[in-house]
Amino acid sequence: MAPWSVFEFHMVGYRRTWRGSALSSFVLPLLTVLGFGVAVGAHVAGGVQGVPYLDWIVPGLVASTAMQTAIGVSTWPVLSRFEWMKTYSALAASPLRLADIVAGDFLYLLFRVLVSAGAFLIVAAAFGAVHSWWTPAALAVCALVGFAVGGPTTAYSAAVRSDSYLAILLRFAVLPMSLFSGVFFEVGALPAVLRWVAYALPLWHGVELSRAAMLGIAPHWPAAAHLAVLVSWVTAGIALTIRQFHRRLVY
């Protein structure tokens, strides 16, 4: 199974660096839960949508963690394998086909997203913020968010030649998306323009579905509509990535 050999290749590298990433996938959520859930939550009297603030933000934060991890995996490492280490050209010279390389990369993306989202849920459970037996469904939502964000970002990182473009992506796409996607407050509180930005980007849809799974709160749109937006991002991401990899490796 050719894609698994690419996954395995990424795992060899991951085995050298997992301590750092494991630390950040536990410590970062811990700080966020403490800072926002506990500290800010103490000032949010009466909670949001009928649940305590800590409980309310945890499903959003887990989706946001999935997004952050996907961004981490699909930015610098991808650029580096094209531009700096040039390892993708070594993969292309082997019997692997482009689809194998892309599939292996996405398997690894899935693995990383599930590990960090899972770690986050364990931390949240320790704070008593996990109540529903439907919580594992939130992991499936996280996987979808991971692909919806990581797919197009992989294509973007394969298209640019310098990492200053990655910094632009973080500042002008990732940061606004993490702030305005209903993780910390409802998108209804946003001005109309920003609300439409939240509707167009993938994270808000993941947050809504994650909240539905973990808290049983009905999402703002029909679940199928949220799913449809996420699936379109995933589909576009896969198509763009294959096109971009083809451009860079077969010329």
Partner: peptide
């Protein structure tokens, strides 16, 4: 069935 040694080394420096 080919071996390829490219002009620029593309080893994985982290491995």
């Amino acid at each position: 069935r080919l071996g390829v040694c490219p002009q620029v080394d593309n080893l994985d420096p982290e491995l």
